[in-house]
Write a protein that binds this DNA or RNA. Structure first.
Lengths: 134, 134
DNA sequence: ATATGACCCTGTATACGCTACAGGGTCATA
DNA sequence: TATGACCCTGTAGCGTATACAGGGTCATAT
């Protein structure tokens, strides 16, 4: 058979993805269903590998699967305006910024709480006290 | 009946928690099972309210339910050393710090990617290009 | 007495993004 | 022909809730 045909295991190794995750992406419409061999094995082509690499890169950058689905659809329409792509990426960046500022506020509170702990007995613990209702 | 007895709805309103969430905490061992009325309604006492307030405060500070279970157990042993409490809080703070630095690294990458976008057509889009395999 | 509507009950399904089985089939190599 | 690496499907689990279906209870209004 064609030497460019890949099994799911090859795809997994080449993209650092678990086999189950690849099947999960297929079931969730991110990766098109490949054809099958006589023995019912998935037979991938180079395009599948490219698409999976794209997905993994986007996941590493924290995009949701929904966002990735949209990015994939856009990247398949190469003549379209890039503004929609920019919108998705910018929205994601805004979400990341929000998370960072939420976590920094959280850390400030944790710092205050932990710094007060004199590490005596629980009855006098400022951490427990901070959590307890008045 | 006793005027200090509370329904689940009262507990919910007083702590800003959804009724389903309170039942969820009970099923997961964070809130002890209250006694029941004749009509099989949960009948809470002030202690339940205090405990739920504690849980919500800790959740607001980002502690996991496992960590909260441990904090609750510790706060019930008031003569014990406070070091275990400090350990849980410090571990949580470290996790928060890790998340912040991960997200800041992510944001740097997103910034770089988005700043390159000239917003022409998808074929020339730097965002798509960044995501695509070489 | 009854009707309404607010509240409560249990149990199950859903969300996200996987991961981990169980129980089987296929394929290459010794 | 036997082994072991690989593949298949289907289901359940993680954490932290939220939502809903289909029913029961309770207080108030008429």
């Amino acid at each position: 058979m064609n030497s460019s045909i890949l099994t799911i295991g090859h795809l997994a190794r080449q993209t650092g993805t678990k086999v189950e995750t690849i099947r999960f992406y297929e079931k969730n419409g991110l990766l098109p269903e490949p054809s099958r061999t006589e023995g019912n094995y998935r037979a991938y082509e180079p395009d599948h590998l490219n698409r999976l690499s794209f997905i993994r890169r986007a996941r590493d950058l924290g995009f949701s699967l929904d966002q990735i689905r949209a990015l994939l659809a856009l990247s398949d329409n190469r003549g379209q305006s890039c503004a929609a792509v920019d919108a998705i990426a910018s929205k994601h960046r805004a979400e990341v910024e929000k998370k960072i500022s939420d976590l920094m506020a959280l850390k400030t509170e944790l710092d205050r709480m932990i710094d007060q702990c004199g590490c005596g007995v629980v009855a006098d613990c400022r951490i427990i006290e901070t959590l307890s209702p008045k």
